[in-house]
Every structure is written in structure tokens, then in C-alpha cells.
Design a binder for these strands. Structure first.
Lengths: 186, 186
DNA sequence: CTGTATTGTCAGTTCAGACTGACGGAACAG
DNA sequence: CTGTTCCGTCAGTCTGAACTGACAATACAG
């Protein structure tokens, strides 16, 4: 096996793992594979090289990169005297993770929270305008929705705490947390 | 609008939100909807009621429940004198979240970590058996894979810290974390 | 034990999302 | 300005996951 075959095999393993993780968490598999490839060759690949290397159409490569740029984890770069556009990926995984969480918060968590509170508010309003045993029923329902909404709210607070830390500190903070609270002590 | 129509509308809003969240995070949308419905009516519904309420086939309802039981968030219950099987869902969102994270760790995180380390080890071994400028290339690749693997390892440590806490304490611990580290102070 | 009500399974079908490839447009060297 | 190379888009096609519904298996009342 030549060194370049070996290199390709290592890359493939890494790329496939990343692709599968992406698929598991609601991100397109091709997008994940392109991201992994760019992580390994940041700033050195153009659209067609990516398409060739991953055996996908350049349309697919282009769309995947558009997604990655929308996520904020890939950027365009130009080299003087070269007509091609190259793409670079963040090299620090913690920075990448921070960016990803921030974006998911914006896209998914916030809109979902709004609808959840809407539902809870709707139930509350309905209960107040109702008499008799049906009122109690609606109040119970409202409480149940609110219980989940409260959880969701605390979860968002947690995300915000995470995002508020400089990413250089996150790893350290979490290690500290792990040390402080290895077991449930109340 | 009657009280029961109101109730159905509140339920629908809640159920649809949950279904969409599920879809965003790699869980089947129907599975999420069934779960939401069971959260609201824990222990009171059988397969056919679920199918009717959500307008899905009972095959789909049955399969969704099988998934939810595999996730450990839904259980069978029997009522004496009744031939039907009912299903109950965990009522505490933190417990549900804890269970979900534990299961994802087992199914996804652990296998992925193994493959990641395999790739890193493969690259390291290959580099050691190579001479000349190609050796440096492989070493660089190995370092890059290892950088991501290290991040992943720290991430798993974080998950483990979380899972090690009693779930009653998680919310409190996170609130404390948020208070202790509102900003990056190094 | 028997009959019936209920749940579980899975082959076939449907459908949403992913992918391709041809086209148009942009960017740049000359 | 012109020709060429490369990138972005999107209509049409394809693929795989999800869903249905008929049948099989199971559980229980009587």
C-alpha cells in the first residue's frame, strides 16, 4: 500500500464517521462528509475537487457548501492568480461546536419555545373561560404542557450559559463540572 | 367552541411541536407525536385509540411504540378485567431527557468514538511505518484526526458527568453553572 | 379449551427529501 | 472586451425511510 492510498483510507474512515454522525442528528449526510473533507484540507479544495474526491455531483457539492456556509462553519477564500474559489473550515472543534449550538438555538429552539408557550397560554386562557368539571380538565392539561415548557426553558438557560462562555473555556468548565459533581449529592 | 374542541386544539399544538422537534434531531416524527400524546394521556390509551387520535394506521402506532419502548421512555401497563394493553410515558421531562441522552450515548456516541480512535490509530501506525516527506504528511493527518477525537472524548466526559448526577439535581447544577460562569473569565 | 379482541409483523407501496446534470451567470485572465 | 473556466441553481429523477393494511401471533374472558 502506498502512502497516498493509506492517506486516502484514513481520510475515508474519518469522513464516513462524520457523515454518519450528521445523519443521526438531522443534518444531511453529504453535508457532513463535505465538512469533514474540508476540515482535513481547509482552504485547499474547490468545488470540483470535492465532488471528485467524494464521488458526488458538483451540484451536490455546491449545495452542501451553501448549507455549511449558512451554518457558519465554512468560508470562501480566494487565491491571487487563481480563478477557482477555495473553501476553508474551522480547525478548532470547540469553536465549531459552539457555532453549531448557537445556530441550532436560533433556528430550532427559539421558534419551538414560542409555540410551546403559545400552547400553554392558549390552554390557560381556555381554562379561565370555562366553568364546571371541564375547567379542571383544562387546567390539568395546561399544567402538563407548562411542566414541559418549564423544562424547555431551563434547557435554553443551560444552552445560554454554554454560549456565554468563551469557547476556549468551555472544555475547562465542563471538566470542572465533571470533577465537582461526579455523583448525586443533592 | 366546546371545551373538548379546545382541549383537542391544545393537544394538537403540543403534539405537533414535539413531532417537529423529533424530526429535527433524527427521531421519526410519528414516534415523537405518539410520545407527546402518551405524555398527555399516560396509561389511558391503547394502540387503536392512539392510531385514531393521530390519524395514523395502527401498524404505524404499534411500531412507534416499539421504538419508544426501546428508547426506554414508554412502558406497557395492563388493567385487570381489560383485555387491552395501555401505555404509559414518563411524566418528568428531566427523567425523560436523562434516559434519552443515556440511550443515544450507548447507541451512537460509543460506536462512533471507537471508529474515530481506530482511524487515528490507523494513521499513527501508518506514519510510523513510512519514511521521508510522506511520513510528515501522515503525521499531520494523524494529528488532525486526533484533535477531533480528543474533542469527542471530552464531550463524552461531559455527557458522563451529566449522567452521573441524579436527575433531580441536574437542573439545579446547571443553574449553578450558569450563575458561576456567566462570562468568559479564563 | 375456545373464540374473540387486541397487538405485532412485514411485504408492498407511497412520499419526502436528496441527488444529478444541464443551463445560465459570474468572475477573471489575457 | 472576449473567451474561458468555474460556480450556483433548480426541474426532473431517484432512493430510502416511513407508512399502510392484511395476516399472524398472542392474550385473555368466559
Amino acid at each position: 500500500m502506498t502512502a497516498s492510498e493509506t492517506r486516502a483510507e484514513v481520510e475515508d474512515r474519518f469522513i464516513e464517521v462524520w457523515g454518519e454522525i450528521s445523519g443521526m442528528w438531522g443534518v444531511n449526510k453529504s453535508v457532513g462528509r463535505v465538512h469533514a473533507l474540508l476540515y482535513l484540507h481547509s482552504g485547499k479544495l474547490d468545488i470540483d475537487s470535492i465532488a471528485q474526491r467524494l464521488q458526488i455531483s458538483h451540484g451536490n457539492a455546491s449545495t452542501s457548501i451553501r448549507d455549511l456556509m449558512a451554518w457558519g462553519v465554512v468560508k470562501r477564500v480566494h487565491k491571487p492568480g487563481d480563478r477557482k474559489t477555495f473553501f476553508e473550515a474551522e480547525q478548532d472543534p470547540w469553536t465549531w461546536f459552539h457555532t453549531t449550538i448557537r445556530e441550532r438555538r436560533r433556528r430550532e429552539v427559539v421558534p419551538v419555545m414560542e409555540r410551546l408557550h403559545e400552547a400553554a397560554g392558549f390552554a390557560e386562557g381556555a381554562a379561565k373561560g370555562t366553568k364546571g368539571p371541564e375547567r379542571k380538565e383544562l387546567e390539568d392539561l395546561q399544567r402538563q404542557v407548562a411542566r414541559f415548557a418549564d423544562f424547555a426553558h431551563e434547557f435554553v438557560d443551560l444552552i445560554d450559559a454554554f454560549l456565554g462562555m468563551g469557547h476556549g473555556r468551555m472544555a475547562k468548565a465542563f471538566r470542572m463540572l465533571a470533577k465537582l459533581m461526579p455523583k448525586d449529592r443533592g
